[in-house]
């Protein structure tokens, strides 16, 4: 066991899988020699050589497109997009090729690649560095999408992602890259893709979050400690395929659902979760499902970002509102 940050846990997972499986290769802009702008891939080139860990030209379409080709021909590429806001040239490759290859070749060609990308706001970052665009992947059949919120899950999900036969988008909440440490086993272990985690059991209300919002939600719960609200907290961990069973089972028990997300408001992951609750648990609901999200606006630059960013205060406010809701 070692105490690791989320970032170090991903690094360890990569190192371990590269050691075990010679077909794993790692690349991206500045991901080789420098070890990435956040240092997620630090030390890997030195250990595994330039054939397996390398810098790419600045070209996201080339990064993803090459990963697809490599995956088809026997490698297990783990490609890095430096920031999720820059993935769009590569998005074409992800959507029009990676996601469809298995289906259109009726199983002949799979694309066992992982595309990693840091994402999310709250860091007073430059333009295009703060968005939360997971819906754009979750909306595409054929893709898997995971977002860890703890070092333990980060390592286990990365190992599962590398070993997965399908393309996995691995979004990393960069705001909590180094925010805290957790005991992480040294040995190889997997966290199942497609399985949410009940972080805290409760009877009064179901609160669902993922990524950096897990931490904000936990802070909000701390704020409300004396309020006597019995929250069941669920960390989605995987966005696609989403673990509706765990969420709906909880909603049926508590009768109240709150989804916390730093995405823009409309047509996001929260929208789908609430729809499912209405479709499949309507008669159990004691209050209308609620969500705390950003607004339907372009993520503001740092001096206006606080208007958009979901914080513990707003989450606590909505939890109270939902707890006190009476029909």
């Amino acid at each position: 066991m070692a105490e690791l940050t989320l970032l170090q846990a991903i690094n360890k997972a990569l190192e371990q899988q590269m050691e075990k499986d010679k077909s794993v290769v790692v690349f991206g802009e500045d991901a080789g020699f420098e070890g990435g702008v956040f240092r997620v891939t630090a030390g890997l080139q030195k250990k595994f050589g330039e054939d397996r860990v390398f810098d790419t030209p600045i070209a996201e379409a080339a990064i993803v497109g090459n990963a697809i080709g490599m995956a088809i021909n026997g490698l297990k590429p783990v490609a890095e997009i430096q920031f999720s806001g820059f993935m769009f040239p590569g998005y074409n490759q992800i959507v029009t090729h990676a996601a469809r290859m298995r289906n259109r070749s009726r199983g002949k060609y799979g694309v066992p690649m992982v595309v990693r990308m840091p994402y999310g706001g709250g860091l007073r970052a430059l333009e295009h560095h703060s968005e939360s665009l997971e819906t754009l992947f979750a909306h595409i059949p054929g893709l898997k999408l995971v977002i860890p919120s703890t070092p333990y899950d980060a390592k286990g999900l990365m190992i599962a992602a590398i070993q997965d036969p399908d393309p996995v988008i691995f979004m990393e909440p960069k705001r909590i890259y180094r925010a805290f440490k957790q005991e992480v086993p040294d040995q190889e272990y997997k966290v199942e893709i497609g399985k949410a985690r009940v972080v805290k059991k409760g009877e009064g209300m179901t609160v669902v979050a993922w990524g950096a919002m897990m931490r904000e939600t936990q802070k909000a719960l701390k704020r409300l400690e004396k309020e006597n609200i019995d929250v069941e907290l669920i960390d989605l961990r995987t966005i696609a395929p989403l673990d509706y069973d765990t969420v709906l089972e909880s909603v049926k028990k508590t009768g109240r659902l709150l989804v916390v997300s730093e995405q823009v408001k409309s047509l996001g992951i929260a929208s789908e979760l609430i729809t499912r609750a209405n479709e499949e648990a309507f008669l159990y609901l004691e209050a209308p499902p609620m969500r705390v999200t950003g607004h339907d606006i372009t993520v503001p630059l740092p001096k206006g970002e606080h208007h958009h960013m979901v914080d513990e205060k707003r989450i606590a406010h909505t939890i109270k509102k939902l707890a006190n809701y009476e029909v």
């Binding site: 607004h295 001096k303 206006g304 606080h306």
Partner: peptide, 11 residues
């Protein structure tokens, strides 16, 4: 800081 109006009105 940027005013709330500003982040909404230019979308």
């Amino acid at each position: 800081l940027v005013e709330l109006d500003d982040v909404f009105k230019y979308n």
